[in-house]
Design a protein around this nucleic acid. Structure first.
Length: 791
DNA sequence: GCAAGGTC
């Protein structure tokens, strides 16, 4: 500054140095501020853009995100010799991780008369700017200012650089607090757990814990636990098939899902003779469905997974490629709301020369363009939208990454959809009375496609009802009392997981996919198509942690660090106090971890080195309730029993019957808590730890005979009897009535009943043949009941 | 070798 003022009189030209978050931003900002084409040079291999502005020499350089990072001092890097607890009390050291950038900063700073930090307008951006500021301060006393802008539009950039503000130290320090606390916790917990498990199981795997990855896994665990613990309940549903005006349509009894079998039977008895129904009420309502909000990163990743089956990780990578090639806008944004002065019209016009032509023309002919805007404004970047209007083929030619065309298509269609009117549906509800009982039928017809015309990803099937009025009569074609069971919740999809993470503030717009990847890499969960399924190690770890340190498995861990970080940003707490408080918190959790070492480790060790025992399907019984390892059938010369792989530490064992071939019935769960149910020969079943099933009062509940229909000659029921080399139907009263069954193929008794005789239907699937469904009753003459299935 | 956050 001193030098500048002194030299200015002698024709000295002030040099303004600008640091942006990345090269792309540097070049764009230089373009805007220079009003033309800036010169470009390389400093230490880093591009710098130069131009004259207001009589000053400007030099704009892009950083590469963080160019510094925290780590522990060298001497703490030996996992074996350093107690992980020490890490918690050690202040990590910040060092340069990208030297060329640091060198370039220093080189530019030497010549600078003024420095402007121009990174993204968020916490990490402020912090990245401060990394440059700190390096510059080593060689320069030039004043440092901050340009704040939330998009790279000309007007906003010029405004930001004409009115620079003071850098926000509190905001920058808040990110510092996050980095330090994340590292302390992650490193200490991960090292401790990994080393503890290695004492018991031979593995090179790392078992990591972190304030984002662990709650992410926690979401998956909670869902899969609910699935595991789910108990199906019976319910009955009374359905009618109506007919009017040449059309069949369905109705459901108003009682919906009836849990009480007797009640369902009673209702069904009242109506079963009904031949006609009366339309007692009809209502028609019009429903508007708005286009979804513009795409921010989270929403984009969710839709790419849901509609295109592209994982969040690769969707973000593809979007990055599209962005770098100028097809779409910056993919990392929280904002789902366009700026007031956003120029939609010229973009839509550009689309008139692409395959989206018809949609673009429809928008242009609809008068003023109205955008369907969201409500989130992260003051960062505009929603993800197309920059260039091109054909999908051109995108695929330029960007070779698989899925690039599909992603572009989604972004383009979403953009156009945001400019189109709402879709209109007409929903019709009919109340139909049969024998004084009420049935409901509903239908839906699309009246106006609106934005959905350009958005084929959402399904919009019409459900039609005949055009009938109140007091019209309809024919009853069929009435059914359908027995069903409640179904367990479904596994989480990636889209749902992203929603949960977003809702609980786990990770940022750019990092959510990486936390999912980390968990996969660790073997905690895996993706099967769009759904996510927990794996043994992940389940046991989450299960163990949720009893000893529940906050770690829940989003609370992130929230408590976040609230400290927020206080630093607000200025209500300084960095040192926040780090001290956070450290105390981590210490408390760490001591819970060490206290429960044995229970966590013994269970985890089982999941890791007992892989072979688990894979031994023939002898695998289940988890040992004492130590969490693996129970299996052990046969010796002296006899056989169920024992634990944890032997000799764990001496848990259970007796088995001496005689008979054993086969574990995987689908049966012993209701008295037996570890598994084993079939002994063809005679009886045996619950491990409980004893023979025939001696159990719950036998009939666990092994209900498969009833297929009434016995034709007595009041008994015909049941499926399966022996080692045959299967047939026999009367439950043992009156002597039997019936043979097809002996070949896999036989399944279906819930559905034959429409003619009321016996159950069966399904036979022979190898290399199509499955056949037919009535099980040989005396039932109905051959039409036979149906070939496509499988 | 450990976390999470930037960016390529």
């Amino acid at each position: 500054m001193y030098r500048a003022r002194f030299l200015q009189g002698a024709g000295y030209i002030m040099t303004v140095v600008v640091f942006t978050e990345k090269n792309k931003a540097a070049s764009q900002i230089a373009n805007i501020l220079s009003g033309g084409k800036p010169d470009r040079k390389l400093v230490e291999g880093v591009p710098v853009y130069m131009f004259r502005r207001n009589g000053q020499e400007w030099q704009v350089m892009g950083l590469s995100g963080h160019i510094m990072g925290y780590d522990f001092p060298q001497e703490l890097n030996n996992w074996r010799s350093v107690d992980p607890a020490i890490l918690i009390d050690t202040r990590p050291i910040k060092t340069v991780t990208k030297k060329p950038f640091a060198d370039a900063i220093i080189s530019l700073a030497r010549e600078a008369d003024a420095i402007i930090l121009a990174c993204d307008f968020d916490r990490e951006g402020e912090n990245i700017g401060f990394e440059a500021k700190e390096l510059a301060s080593r060689v320069s006393r030039a004043p440092v200012k901050r340009a704040r802008f939330s998009s790279l539009s000309d007007s906003e950039i010029i405004k930001a650089f004409d009115n620079p503000v003071e850098p926000d130290a509190a905001m920058a320090m808040s990110a510092e607090a996050r980095q330090i606390l994340d590292l302390k916790m992650g490193a200490a917990f991960t090292r401790y757990l990994t080393l503890a498990v290695r004492e018991r199981a031979r593995t090179k795997e790392i078992l990591s814990i972190g304030p984002c990855q662990t709650p992410t896994c926690g979401f998956v665990y909670e869902r899969d636990k609910a699935i595991k613990e789910f108990n199906p309940e019976d319910f009955w549903k009374i359905e009618a098939l109506f007919h009017a005006k040449d059309m069949d349509f369905k109705g459901v009894h108003r009682a919906g899902n009836i849990k009480d079998k007797a009640k369902a039977a009673e209702i069904f008895d009242r109506i079963r003779a009904g031949k006609t129904g009366l339309v007692t009420k009809k209502s028609v309502t019009e429903i508007k469905t708005n286009a979804p909000y513009p795409l921010n990163t989270t929403e984009f990743l969710k839709r790419a997974s849901k509609f295109l089956n592209i994982s969040p990780e690769s969707a973000l990578e593809i979007a990055e490629q599209l962005y770098l090639n100028g097809f779409t806008s910056y993919p990392r944004t929280e904002t789902n709301k366009y700026a007031d002065d956003f120029d939609f019209k010229s973009k839509v016009i550009a689309f008139t020369s692409t395959e989206y032509r018809d949609h673009a023309l429809a928008i242009l002919s609809g008068g003023d363009i109205v955008v369907r805007n969201g409500i989130k404004d992260g003051h960062d970047h505009p929603p993800i939208h197309p920059i260039k209007a091109v054909a999908v083929k051109e995108v695929e030619k330029a960007v070779k990454t698989e899925g690039a065309g599909k992603i572009y298509d989604l972004i383009a269609r979403h953009f156009l959809a945001n400019l189109m009117p709402a879709a209109l549906f007409e929903k019709t509800h009919l109340e139909i009375t049969v024998e004084k009982e009420l049935f409901d039928s509903s239908g839906s017809i699309m009246k106006n496609e609106g934005w959905m015309v350009v958005y084929p990803f959402e399904t919009k099937n019409d459900k039609l009802l005949p055009d009938i009025k109140e007091q019209d009569e309809v024919k009853v074609k069929k009435l059914e009392n359908i027995a069903s069971k409640t179904t367990p919740p479904k596994h989480l999809t990636e889209a749902e997981l992203l929603t949960l993470m977003d809702k609980h503030g786990i990770g940022t717009k750019a990092t959510a996919p990486s936390h999912i990847e980390t968990n996969k890499k660790r073997g905690y969960f895996e993706t099967k198509g769009k759904t996510i399924v927990i794996q043994e190690t992940g389940f046991i770890l989450m299960d163990a942690l949720s009893t000893s340190i529940p906050v770690v498995v829940k989003p609370e861990i992130r929230a408590s660090i976040e609230s400290l970080v927020q206080e630093v940003e607000d200025g209500s707490k300084d960095l040192e106090h926040a780090v001290a408080e956070g450290t105390e918190l981590i210490k408390m959790m760490y001591s819970r971890l060490t206290e429960s070492r044995d229970s966590i480790v013994s269970r985890l060790a089982g999941s890791i080195n007992d892989g072979t025992a688990t894979d031994d399907k023939k002898n695998y019984i289940g988890k040992c309730p004492d130590c969490g390892r693996v129970l299996r059938i052990i046969s010796t010369e002296k006899g056989r029993f169920v024992g634990c792989t944890g032997y000799p530490q764990c001496r848990n064992s259970y007796p088995l019957p001496r005689e008979g071939a054993l086969s574990v019935l995987r689908s049966k769960n012993c209701k008295k808590g037996g570890a598994a149910v084993i079939k002994v020969g063809n005679k009886y079943c045996w619950a491990v730890g409980i004893g023979p099933c025939f001696a159990c009062d719950l036998m009939k509940k666990c092994f209900p005979p498969e009833v297929v229909g009434p016995c034709p000659i007595c009041d008994g029921e015909m049941c499926l009897v399966t022996t080692k080399d045959s299967r047939f139907l026999g009367c439950s009263n043992r009156c002597g009535r039997t019936q043979s069954l097809p002996q070949e193929g896999r036989l399944t008794v279906l819930e559905r009943k034959c429409e003619v005789c009321g016996w159950k239907m069966i399904r036979i699937k022979e190898k290399d043949k199509e499955a056949i469904e037919k009535c099980v009753n040989r005396s039932c003459g109905k051959d039409q009941g036979k149906k070939r299935l496509s499988t």
